[in-house]
């Protein structure tokens, strides 16, 4: 069951902004308030908007529960995989092996007040992205499962 054309057209436009905002919160998790969980939740609300506008059937035709389930598992595996890499580099579990290394997210943080460099933080942004991927899948799944208890979702 889908809603009127006005709602669907508005949802199409707003969805892009919700996704952008969600990914912004995830990517800036190590600099500003927010992070993986909050950003993932924002992204999931984008999917909820699509469900509200087009109905869950239309969303499931495009993505399917397996898609969200994979996203959940992928996020968790990236998270723990990042922690594991530190072990094989000779440090302890969860050690920040990317920080100050000059590679991705590897810039040293400038001392004192600074505008915030996205390319810092080492593994922390990677963990945030992993949590974001996990949460967007898990929260969307929760909404889909809750819908399956209603007449429309059954």
């Amino acid at each position: 069951m889908s809603m009127s054309k006005i709602v669907r057209a508005a949802a199409d436009i707003i969805f892009v902004f919700i996704l952008t905002f969600g990914f912004y919160i995830v990517a800036h998790g190590h600099l500003t308030p927010g992070g993986g969980f909050q950003g993932g939740a924002v992204i999931a609300t984008g999917f909820v908007l699509l469900i509200a506008a087009y109905g869950s059937r239309a969303l499931l035709d495009r993505f399917g529960k397996e898609w969200f389930r994979s996203s959940e598992a992928l996020g968790l595996l990236v998270f723990i995989g990042t922690a594991f890499v530190a072990l094989f580099l000779g440090a302890t579990f969860f050690a920040n092996w990317l920080a100050n290394g000059g590679l991705i997210f590897g810039e040293a943080v400038a001392f004192g007040p600074n505008p915030g460099d996205l390319n810092t933080g080492g593994v922390i942004p990677i963990m945030n992205i992993a949590v974001g991927i996990e949460v967007l899948g898990a929260l969307s799944l929760i909404v889909l499962y809750m819908l399956s208890g209603t007449e429309e979702g059954a």
Partner: peptide, 20 residues
């Protein structure tokens, strides 16, 4: 050397990968 971490990391990794 890493036994306390592996004690948790192994079942956690296994749990996350089980659905896949």
């Amino acid at each position: 050397q890493n036994a306390p971490a592996l004690l948790l990391a192994v079942p956690m990794l296994a749990a996350f990968a089980t659905p896949l």
